[in-house]
Design a protein around this nucleic acid. Structure first.
Lengths: 224, 224
DNA sequence: TAAAAATGATAGCAATACTATTATTTGGAA
DNA sequence: TTCCAAATAATAGTATTGCTATCATTTTTA
Protein backbone atom coordinates (compact mmCIF):
# COMPACT_ATOMS: atom_id res chain seq x y z
CA UNK A 1 0.00 0.00 0.00
CA UNK A 2 1.35 3.36 -1.05
CA UNK A 3 1.87 6.16 1.37
CA UNK A 4 -0.76 8.85 0.98
CA UNK A 5 0.65 12.32 1.27
CA UNK A 6 -1.55 15.01 2.68
CA UNK A 7 -0.15 18.50 2.57
CA UNK A 8 -0.91 21.44 4.77
CA UNK A 9 -1.86 24.06 2.28
CA UNK A 10 -2.85 27.65 3.09
CA UNK A 11 -6.30 27.63 4.69
CA UNK A 12 -7.71 30.46 2.67
CA UNK A 13 -7.15 28.46 -0.49
CA UNK A 14 -10.27 26.42 0.01
CA UNK A 15 -13.55 26.45 1.88
CA UNK A 16 -13.31 22.77 2.72
CA UNK A 17 -10.11 20.79 2.25
CA UNK A 18 -10.65 18.47 -0.73
CA UNK A 19 -7.80 16.25 0.46
CA UNK A 20 -9.94 15.05 3.36
CA UNK A 21 -12.90 13.55 1.52
CA UNK A 22 -13.54 11.02 -1.21
CA UNK A 23 -15.58 13.57 -3.11
CA UNK A 24 -12.75 16.07 -2.78
CA UNK A 25 -10.25 13.59 -4.18
CA UNK A 26 -12.44 12.93 -7.17
CA UNK A 27 -12.87 16.66 -7.64
CA UNK A 28 -9.10 17.23 -7.67
CA UNK A 29 -8.23 14.31 -9.90
CA UNK A 30 -10.82 15.22 -12.48
CA UNK A 31 -10.15 18.93 -12.40
CA UNK A 32 -6.58 18.21 -13.48
CA UNK A 33 -7.85 16.09 -16.38
CA UNK A 34 -10.44 18.65 -17.43
CA UNK A 35 -8.16 21.69 -17.23
CA UNK A 36 -5.66 19.80 -19.36
CA UNK A 37 -8.39 18.96 -21.86
CA UNK A 38 -10.11 22.34 -22.13
CA UNK A 39 -7.49 24.82 -21.02
CA UNK A 40 -8.08 26.91 -17.93
CA UNK A 41 -10.21 29.47 -19.76
CA UNK A 42 -12.49 26.81 -21.16
CA UNK A 43 -12.76 25.01 -17.85
CA UNK A 44 -15.86 25.66 -15.71
CA UNK A 45 -17.26 24.24 -12.49
CA UNK A 46 -20.38 23.23 -14.38
CA UNK A 47 -18.37 21.08 -16.79
CA UNK A 48 -16.38 19.59 -13.93
CA UNK A 49 -19.62 18.81 -12.11
CA UNK A 50 -20.93 17.00 -15.17
CA UNK A 51 -17.69 15.02 -15.43
CA UNK A 52 -17.86 13.78 -11.85
CA UNK A 53 -21.65 13.34 -11.93
CA UNK A 54 -22.25 16.01 -9.41
CA UNK A 55 -23.45 19.60 -9.22
CA UNK A 56 -21.91 23.03 -9.33
CA UNK A 57 -23.22 23.71 -5.84
CA UNK A 58 -21.19 20.86 -4.41
CA UNK A 59 -17.98 22.10 -5.98
CA UNK A 60 -18.61 25.59 -4.63
CA UNK A 61 -18.62 24.05 -1.16
CA UNK A 62 -14.91 23.29 -1.68
CA UNK A 63 -13.64 26.25 -3.68
CA UNK A 64 -14.76 29.84 -3.94
CA UNK A 65 -13.89 29.95 -7.62
CA UNK A 66 -11.86 28.25 -10.30
CA UNK A 67 -8.88 30.51 -9.81
CA UNK A 68 -8.42 29.26 -6.26
CA UNK A 69 -8.77 25.69 -7.47
CA UNK A 70 -5.96 26.26 -9.97
CA UNK A 71 -3.83 27.84 -7.27
CA UNK A 72 -4.60 24.88 -5.03
CA UNK A 73 -3.31 22.48 -7.67
CA UNK A 74 -0.15 24.52 -8.08
CA UNK A 75 0.42 24.78 -4.34
CA UNK A 76 -0.04 21.07 -4.08
CA UNK A 77 2.53 20.47 -6.76
CA UNK A 78 4.94 22.93 -5.16
CA UNK A 79 4.54 21.33 -1.72
CA UNK A 80 5.10 17.91 -3.15
CA UNK A 81 8.23 18.96 -5.03
CA UNK A 82 9.49 20.78 -1.95
CA UNK A 83 9.00 17.64 0.11
CA UNK A 84 10.76 15.50 -2.48
CA UNK A 85 13.71 17.87 -2.74
CA UNK A 86 13.98 17.89 1.02
CA UNK A 87 14.10 14.13 1.50
CA UNK A 88 16.07 13.43 -1.64
CA UNK A 89 18.85 15.92 -0.98
CA UNK A 90 19.11 15.55 2.78
CA UNK A 91 21.91 13.03 2.94
CA UNK A 92 23.87 13.98 -0.11
CA UNK A 93 27.57 14.67 0.42
CA UNK A 94 28.06 18.16 -1.02
CA UNK A 95 26.01 21.25 -1.87
CA UNK A 96 26.95 20.80 -5.52
CA UNK A 97 25.48 17.31 -5.63
CA UNK A 98 22.40 18.52 -3.77
CA UNK A 99 21.84 21.24 -6.33
CA UNK A 100 22.23 18.74 -9.13
CA UNK A 101 19.71 16.47 -7.46
CA UNK A 102 17.29 19.36 -6.95
CA UNK A 103 17.49 20.28 -10.62
CA UNK A 104 16.95 16.68 -11.58
CA UNK A 105 13.79 16.62 -9.47
CA UNK A 106 12.47 19.91 -10.83
CA UNK A 107 12.59 18.36 -14.29
CA UNK A 108 11.70 14.76 -13.54
CA UNK A 109 9.85 14.33 -10.26
CA UNK A 110 6.52 13.82 -11.97
CA UNK A 111 7.85 10.82 -13.84
CA UNK A 112 9.59 9.19 -10.94
CA UNK A 113 7.38 9.75 -7.94
CA UNK A 114 3.73 9.44 -7.06
CA UNK A 115 1.74 12.25 -5.54
CA UNK A 116 -1.43 10.42 -4.63
CA UNK A 117 -3.64 7.63 -5.86
CA UNK A 118 -6.19 9.98 -7.34
CA UNK A 119 -4.12 12.46 -9.35
CA UNK A 120 -2.14 11.76 -12.49
CA UNK A 121 1.07 13.63 -11.73
CA UNK A 122 2.21 13.68 -15.35
CA UNK A 123 -0.94 15.53 -16.36
CA UNK A 124 -0.75 17.71 -13.26
CA UNK A 125 2.72 18.69 -14.43
CA UNK A 126 1.34 19.51 -17.89
CA UNK A 127 -1.22 21.76 -16.24
CA UNK A 128 1.45 23.43 -14.09
CA UNK A 129 3.57 24.12 -17.18
CA UNK A 130 0.63 25.31 -19.28
CA UNK A 131 -1.45 27.25 -16.76
CA UNK A 132 0.83 27.69 -13.76
CA UNK A 133 1.79 31.33 -14.16
CA UNK A 134 -1.89 32.30 -14.27
CA UNK A 135 -2.21 31.25 -10.65
CA UNK A 136 0.00 34.12 -9.50
CA UNK A 137 -0.45 36.67 -12.28
CA UNK A 138 -3.72 38.10 -11.03
CA UNK A 139 -5.04 41.51 -10.18
CA UNK A 140 -5.56 40.45 -6.57
CA UNK A 141 -1.99 39.17 -5.97
CA UNK A 142 -1.28 41.55 -3.16
CA UNK A 143 -4.39 40.62 -1.22
CA UNK A 144 -3.94 36.92 -1.79
CA UNK A 145 -0.32 37.26 -0.81
CA UNK A 146 -1.38 38.84 2.49
CA UNK A 147 -3.52 35.78 3.07
CA UNK A 148 -0.44 33.62 2.60
CA UNK A 149 -1.64 31.92 -0.55
CA UNK A 150 1.80 31.88 -2.15
CA UNK A 151 3.90 30.52 0.71
CA UNK A 152 4.27 27.15 -0.96
CA UNK A 153 6.05 28.60 -3.95
CA UNK A 154 8.13 30.87 -1.73
CA UNK A 155 9.27 28.00 0.44
CA UNK A 156 10.11 25.90 -2.57
CA UNK A 157 12.16 28.70 -4.10
CA UNK A 158 13.82 29.31 -0.76
CA UNK A 159 14.76 25.69 -0.32
CA UNK A 160 16.74 25.70 -3.56
CA UNK A 161 18.07 29.19 -2.82
CA UNK A 162 19.47 27.80 0.44
CA UNK A 163 21.33 25.09 -1.46
CA UNK A 164 22.65 27.71 -3.88
CA UNK A 165 23.94 29.74 -0.95
CA UNK A 166 25.82 26.71 0.32
CA UNK A 167 27.37 26.18 -3.08
CA UNK A 168 28.49 29.76 -3.21
CA UNK A 169 27.94 31.86 -0.08
CA UNK A 170 28.84 35.17 -1.68
CA UNK A 171 26.59 34.81 -4.72
CA UNK A 172 24.40 37.87 -5.03
CA UNK A 173 21.23 36.32 -6.42
CA UNK A 174 20.35 33.03 -4.72
CA UNK A 175 16.60 33.64 -4.82
CA UNK A 176 16.70 35.11 -8.30
CA UNK A 177 18.62 32.13 -9.62
CA UNK A 178 16.36 29.71 -7.81
CA UNK A 179 13.11 31.23 -9.08
CA UNK A 180 14.64 31.51 -12.53
CA UNK A 181 15.45 27.80 -12.56
CA UNK A 182 11.84 26.97 -11.72
CA UNK A 183 10.45 29.41 -14.25
CA UNK A 184 12.91 28.30 -16.93
CA UNK A 185 12.07 24.67 -16.37
CA UNK A 186 8.45 25.42 -17.21
CA UNK A 187 8.92 28.01 -19.93
CA UNK A 188 11.62 26.27 -21.89
CA UNK A 189 9.56 23.09 -21.86
CA UNK A 190 6.50 25.00 -22.97
CA UNK A 191 8.46 26.68 -25.74
CA UNK A 192 9.94 23.40 -26.92
CA UNK A 193 6.45 21.95 -27.16
CA UNK A 194 4.62 24.90 -28.67
CA UNK A 195 6.90 27.74 -29.76
CA UNK A 196 10.17 25.99 -30.61
CA UNK A 197 11.89 29.04 -32.09
CA UNK A 198 12.04 30.45 -28.58
CA UNK A 199 14.36 27.75 -27.33
CA UNK A 200 17.25 25.53 -28.42
CA UNK A 201 15.69 22.41 -26.95
CA UNK A 202 14.43 19.99 -29.55
CA UNK A 203 11.10 18.29 -29.18
CA UNK A 204 12.10 14.67 -28.94
CA UNK A 205 12.11 11.72 -26.58
CA UNK A 206 14.96 12.97 -24.48
CA UNK A 207 13.65 16.52 -24.13
CA UNK A 208 13.69 16.17 -20.37
CA UNK A 209 17.32 15.04 -20.48
CA UNK A 210 18.20 18.09 -22.58
CA UNK A 211 16.28 20.41 -20.31
CA UNK A 212 18.01 19.05 -17.23
CA UNK A 213 21.38 19.48 -18.90
CA UNK A 214 20.52 23.04 -19.86
CA UNK A 215 19.43 24.01 -16.36
CA UNK A 216 22.52 22.38 -14.94
CA UNK A 217 24.80 24.34 -17.24
CA UNK A 218 23.00 27.58 -16.43
CA UNK A 219 23.29 26.96 -12.71
CA UNK A 220 26.93 25.87 -12.90
CA UNK A 221 28.00 28.85 -14.97
CA UNK A 222 26.23 31.21 -12.64
CA UNK A 223 28.05 29.79 -9.65
CA UNK A 224 31.55 29.63 -11.06
CA UNK B 1 6.16 66.70 -34.32
CA UNK B 2 6.91 63.18 -33.17
CA UNK B 3 7.32 60.33 -35.57
CA UNK B 4 4.33 58.02 -35.50
CA UNK B 5 5.31 54.39 -35.67
CA UNK B 6 2.94 51.99 -37.32
CA UNK B 7 3.87 48.37 -37.10
CA UNK B 8 2.99 45.52 -39.40
CA UNK B 9 1.45 43.05 -37.04
CA UNK B 10 0.11 39.61 -37.98
CA UNK B 11 -3.11 40.06 -39.93
CA UNK B 12 -5.07 37.44 -38.09
CA UNK B 13 -4.60 39.36 -34.88
CA UNK B 14 -7.38 41.77 -35.71
CA UNK B 15 -10.40 42.15 -37.91
CA UNK B 16 -9.63 45.76 -38.70
CA UNK B 17 -6.29 47.33 -37.88
CA UNK B 18 -6.83 49.71 -34.95
CA UNK B 19 -3.62 51.55 -35.81
CA UNK B 20 -5.26 53.00 -38.92
CA UNK B 21 -8.20 54.90 -37.40
CA UNK B 22 -8.79 57.49 -34.74
CA UNK B 23 -11.34 55.25 -33.09
CA UNK B 24 -8.83 52.38 -33.14
CA UNK B 25 -6.20 54.54 -31.46
CA UNK B 26 -8.60 55.49 -28.72
CA UNK B 27 -9.52 51.84 -28.32
CA UNK B 28 -5.89 50.79 -27.89
CA UNK B 29 -4.91 53.60 -25.57
CA UNK B 30 -7.85 53.05 -23.27
CA UNK B 31 -7.65 49.27 -23.31
CA UNK B 32 -4.15 49.56 -21.83
CA UNK B 33 -5.44 51.82 -19.08
CA UNK B 34 -8.43 49.63 -18.33
CA UNK B 35 -6.54 46.33 -18.30
CA UNK B 36 -4.07 47.91 -15.91
CA UNK B 37 -6.91 49.11 -13.72
CA UNK B 38 -9.07 45.97 -13.64
CA UNK B 39 -6.67 43.16 -14.48
CA UNK B 40 -7.20 41.15 -17.63
CA UNK B 41 -9.83 38.88 -16.06
CA UNK B 42 -11.90 41.84 -14.89
CA UNK B 43 -11.57 43.63 -18.20
CA UNK B 44 -14.48 43.36 -20.66
CA UNK B 45 -15.33 44.92 -24.00
CA UNK B 46 -18.49 46.33 -22.44
CA UNK B 47 -16.50 48.24 -19.82
CA UNK B 48 -14.05 49.43 -22.45
CA UNK B 49 -16.95 50.60 -24.61
CA UNK B 50 -18.33 52.59 -21.69
CA UNK B 51 -14.92 54.14 -21.07
CA UNK B 52 -14.55 55.36 -24.64
CA UNK B 53 -18.25 56.28 -24.94
CA UNK B 54 -18.90 53.69 -27.53
CA UNK B 55 -20.51 50.29 -27.87
CA UNK B 56 -19.43 46.67 -27.64
CA UNK B 57 -20.43 46.13 -31.24
CA UNK B 58 -17.93 48.69 -32.44
CA UNK B 59 -15.09 47.08 -30.55
CA UNK B 60 -15.99 43.69 -31.98
CA UNK B 61 -15.39 45.16 -35.43
CA UNK B 62 -11.72 45.48 -34.51
CA UNK B 63 -11.07 42.40 -32.40
CA UNK B 64 -12.65 38.98 -32.28
CA UNK B 65 -12.22 38.78 -28.51
CA UNK B 66 -10.28 40.23 -25.62
CA UNK B 67 -7.58 37.60 -25.81
CA UNK B 68 -6.58 38.77 -29.28
CA UNK B 69 -6.61 42.36 -28.10
CA UNK B 70 -4.18 41.46 -25.31
CA UNK B 71 -1.98 39.60 -27.77
CA UNK B 72 -2.13 42.62 -30.07
CA UNK B 73 -0.85 44.85 -27.28
CA UNK B 74 1.97 42.43 -26.55
CA UNK B 75 2.92 42.09 -30.22
CA UNK B 76 2.95 45.80 -30.50
CA UNK B 77 5.27 46.09 -27.53
CA UNK B 78 7.53 43.35 -28.91
CA UNK B 79 7.70 44.95 -32.34
CA UNK B 80 8.52 48.29 -30.85
CA UNK B 81 11.26 46.85 -28.64
CA UNK B 82 12.62 44.87 -31.56
CA UNK B 83 12.76 48.03 -33.66
CA UNK B 84 14.49 49.96 -30.87
CA UNK B 85 17.06 47.24 -30.30
CA UNK B 86 17.74 47.15 -34.01
CA UNK B 87 18.37 50.86 -34.45
CA UNK B 88 20.08 51.34 -31.11
CA UNK B 89 22.58 48.51 -31.49
CA UNK B 90 23.28 48.83 -35.20
CA UNK B 91 26.37 50.99 -35.03
CA UNK B 92 27.87 49.79 -31.78
CA UNK B 93 31.50 48.64 -31.94
CA UNK B 94 31.37 45.13 -30.46
CA UNK B 95 28.87 42.33 -29.86
CA UNK B 96 29.45 42.69 -26.11
CA UNK B 97 28.44 46.32 -26.16
CA UNK B 98 25.45 45.49 -28.34
CA UNK B 99 24.28 42.87 -25.87
CA UNK B 100 24.68 45.35 -23.03
CA UNK B 101 22.64 47.90 -24.95
CA UNK B 102 19.94 45.33 -25.74
CA UNK B 103 19.64 44.41 -22.07
CA UNK B 104 19.46 48.07 -21.16
CA UNK B 105 16.58 48.50 -23.60
CA UNK B 106 14.71 45.41 -22.40
CA UNK B 107 14.66 46.96 -18.95
CA UNK B 108 14.30 50.66 -19.77
CA UNK B 109 12.89 51.28 -23.23
CA UNK B 110 9.47 52.23 -21.91
CA UNK B 111 10.96 55.04 -19.87
CA UNK B 112 13.20 56.43 -22.55
CA UNK B 113 11.28 56.13 -25.79
CA UNK B 114 7.82 56.88 -27.05
CA UNK B 115 5.66 54.34 -28.79
CA UNK B 116 2.85 56.54 -30.04
CA UNK B 117 0.91 59.62 -29.04
CA UNK B 118 -2.07 57.62 -27.85
CA UNK B 119 -0.55 54.91 -25.65
CA UNK B 120 1.15 55.38 -22.32
CA UNK B 121 4.16 53.11 -22.72
CA UNK B 122 4.90 52.95 -19.01
CA UNK B 123 1.44 51.53 -18.36
CA UNK B 124 1.70 49.31 -21.42
CA UNK B 125 4.87 47.90 -19.89
CA UNK B 126 3.04 47.29 -16.61
CA UNK B 127 0.40 45.37 -18.54
CA UNK B 128 3.05 43.36 -20.39
CA UNK B 129 4.73 42.43 -17.10
CA UNK B 130 1.45 41.63 -15.34
CA UNK B 131 -0.57 39.96 -18.07
CA UNK B 132 1.93 39.22 -20.82
CA UNK B 133 2.39 35.48 -20.34
CA UNK B 134 -1.37 34.98 -20.63
CA UNK B 135 -1.17 36.03 -24.26
CA UNK B 136 0.78 32.90 -25.19
CA UNK B 137 -0.28 30.45 -22.48
CA UNK B 138 -3.55 29.43 -24.08
CA UNK B 139 -5.20 26.20 -25.11
CA UNK B 140 -5.20 27.31 -28.73
CA UNK B 141 -1.45 28.11 -28.95
CA UNK B 142 -0.75 25.65 -31.68
CA UNK B 143 -3.49 26.96 -33.94
CA UNK B 144 -2.64 30.57 -33.29
CA UNK B 145 0.99 29.76 -33.88
CA UNK B 146 0.10 28.33 -37.29
CA UNK B 147 -1.57 31.63 -38.07
CA UNK B 148 1.70 33.38 -37.26
CA UNK B 149 0.39 35.23 -34.24
CA UNK B 150 3.62 34.85 -32.28
CA UNK B 151 6.17 35.91 -34.88
CA UNK B 152 6.78 39.21 -33.16
CA UNK B 153 8.02 37.56 -30.00
CA UNK B 154 10.03 35.04 -31.99
CA UNK B 155 11.75 37.72 -34.02
CA UNK B 156 12.52 39.72 -30.93
CA UNK B 157 14.03 36.70 -29.20
CA UNK B 158 15.95 35.85 -32.34
CA UNK B 159 17.40 39.33 -32.64
CA UNK B 160 18.97 39.09 -29.22
CA UNK B 161 19.94 35.45 -29.83
CA UNK B 162 21.84 36.63 -32.91
CA UNK B 163 23.81 39.09 -30.80
CA UNK B 164 24.52 36.35 -28.27
CA UNK B 165 25.86 34.15 -31.05
CA UNK B 166 28.23 36.92 -32.09
CA UNK B 167 29.46 37.27 -28.54
CA UNK B 168 30.11 33.58 -28.31
CA UNK B 169 29.63 31.54 -31.50
CA UNK B 170 29.92 28.15 -29.83
CA UNK B 171 27.42 28.82 -27.05
CA UNK B 172 24.84 26.06 -27.01
CA UNK B 173 21.76 28.01 -25.95
CA UNK B 174 21.48 31.36 -27.72
CA UNK B 175 17.70 31.23 -28.04
CA UNK B 176 17.25 29.79 -24.58
CA UNK B 177 19.37 32.52 -23.03
CA UNK B 178 17.64 35.18 -25.06
CA UNK B 179 14.11 34.10 -24.15
CA UNK B 180 15.21 33.65 -20.56
CA UNK B 181 16.48 37.23 -20.43
CA UNK B 182 13.11 38.49 -21.64
CA UNK B 183 11.15 36.28 -19.29
CA UNK B 184 13.42 37.09 -16.36
CA UNK B 185 13.11 40.80 -16.97
CA UNK B 186 9.36 40.51 -16.54
CA UNK B 187 9.20 37.91 -13.81
CA UNK B 188 11.88 39.29 -11.55
CA UNK B 189 10.26 42.71 -11.79
CA UNK B 190 6.86 41.21 -11.02
CA UNK B 191 8.29 39.30 -8.08
CA UNK B 192 10.05 42.38 -6.71
CA UNK B 193 6.76 44.26 -6.85
CA UNK B 194 4.42 41.58 -5.55
CA UNK B 195 6.21 38.49 -4.24
CA UNK B 196 9.55 39.81 -3.04
CA UNK B 197 10.71 36.59 -1.40
CA UNK B 198 11.06 35.14 -4.89
CA UNK B 199 13.82 37.51 -5.87
CA UNK B 200 16.82 39.35 -4.46
CA UNK B 201 15.84 42.64 -6.05
CA UNK B 202 14.61 45.24 -3.59
CA UNK B 203 11.60 47.34 -4.30
CA UNK B 204 13.07 50.79 -4.42
CA UNK B 205 13.70 53.70 -6.75
CA UNK B 206 16.57 52.09 -8.56
CA UNK B 207 14.87 48.73 -9.03
CA UNK B 208 15.37 49.06 -12.78
CA UNK B 209 19.06 49.71 -12.26
CA UNK B 210 19.34 46.60 -10.10
CA UNK B 211 17.39 44.52 -12.58
CA UNK B 212 19.60 45.63 -15.44
CA UNK B 213 22.68 44.79 -13.42
CA UNK B 214 21.29 41.37 -12.57
CA UNK B 215 20.47 40.51 -16.17
CA UNK B 216 23.88 41.73 -17.25
CA UNK B 217 25.63 39.53 -14.72
CA UNK B 218 23.54 36.53 -15.74
CA UNK B 219 24.30 37.08 -19.41
CA UNK B 220 28.01 37.70 -18.81
CA UNK B 221 28.46 34.63 -16.67
CA UNK B 222 26.67 32.48 -19.18
CA UNK B 223 28.95 33.67 -21.94
CA UNK B 224 32.29 33.40 -20.16
C1' DT C 1 -30.62 5.09 15.77
C1' DA C 2 -30.67 9.85 15.86
C1' DA C 3 -28.27 13.84 14.87
C1' DA C 4 -25.09 16.06 12.06
C1' DA C 5 -22.63 16.54 8.06
C1' DA C 6 -22.26 16.13 3.20
C1' DT C 7 -24.22 16.02 -1.19
C1' DG C 8 -28.02 16.58 -4.68
C1' DA C 9 -31.84 18.94 -7.03
C1' DT C 10 -33.84 22.84 -8.52
C1' DA C 11 -34.23 27.59 -9.26
C1' DG C 12 -32.79 31.92 -10.17
C1' DC C 13 -30.02 36.09 -11.24
C1' DA C 14 -26.62 39.45 -12.94
C1' DA C 15 -22.78 39.58 -15.96
C1' DT C 16 -20.13 37.91 -19.92
C1' DA C 17 -19.32 37.02 -24.53
C1' DC C 18 -20.93 37.29 -28.20
C1' DT C 19 -24.34 38.10 -33.02
C1' DA C 20 -27.86 40.35 -35.79
C1' DT C 21 -30.41 44.18 -37.54
C1' DT C 22 -31.33 48.60 -38.43
C1' DA C 23 -30.29 53.51 -37.85
C1' DT C 24 -27.26 57.40 -38.03
C1' DT C 25 -23.08 59.83 -38.63
C1' DT C 26 -18.84 61.13 -41.09
C1' DG C 27 -15.41 61.53 -44.48
C1' DG C 28 -14.21 61.56 -49.37
C1' DA C 29 -14.89 61.57 -54.36
C1' DA C 30 -17.73 63.36 -58.18
C1' DT D 1 -22.25 70.45 -52.57
C1' DT D 2 -24.09 66.57 -52.52
C1' DC D 3 -24.24 62.02 -52.50
C1' DC D 4 -22.00 57.48 -51.61
C1' DA D 5 -19.74 54.41 -48.87
C1' DA D 6 -17.71 53.33 -44.84
C1' DA D 7 -17.75 53.59 -39.99
C1' DT D 8 -20.05 53.87 -35.84
C1' DA D 9 -24.26 53.81 -32.74
C1' DA D 10 -28.50 51.95 -30.95
C1' DT D 11 -31.11 48.33 -29.75
C1' DA D 12 -32.18 43.75 -29.08
C1' DG D 13 -31.43 39.15 -28.23
C1' DT D 14 -29.13 34.53 -26.84
C1' DA D 15 -26.32 30.98 -24.72
C1' DT D 16 -23.06 30.54 -21.21
C1' DT D 17 -20.66 31.83 -17.00
C1' DG D 18 -20.25 32.57 -12.32
C1' DC D 19 -22.25 32.57 -8.87
C1' DT D 20 -26.19 32.24 -4.44
C1' DA D 21 -30.27 30.43 -2.09
C1' DT D 22 -33.36 26.93 -0.54
C1' DC D 23 -34.82 22.61 0.47
C1' DA D 24 -34.56 17.51 0.02
C1' DT D 25 -31.95 13.44 0.46
C1' DT D 26 -28.17 10.56 1.48
C1' DT D 27 -24.10 9.24 4.17
C1' DT D 28 -21.25 9.42 8.35
C1' DT D 29 -20.39 9.17 13.04
C1' DA D 30 -21.34 9.59 17.77
Amino acid sequence: MAIQLKFSLPEKLYIKDPQTTKYGNKLLGNSVLLIDELGFEGFTFKKLAAKIDSTETSIYRYFENKHLLLLFLNCWYWEWLNYLIEVETKNLPSPQVRLERAIHLIVNAHHEFTLTAYVDEVILHKVVVMEGTKSYHIHSVDNENKDGLFVCYKELVERVAAIIELVQPDFEYPRGLSSTLFEMANHQLYFARHLPRLTDLKRKDDLKVELEKMLLIFAKKMLI
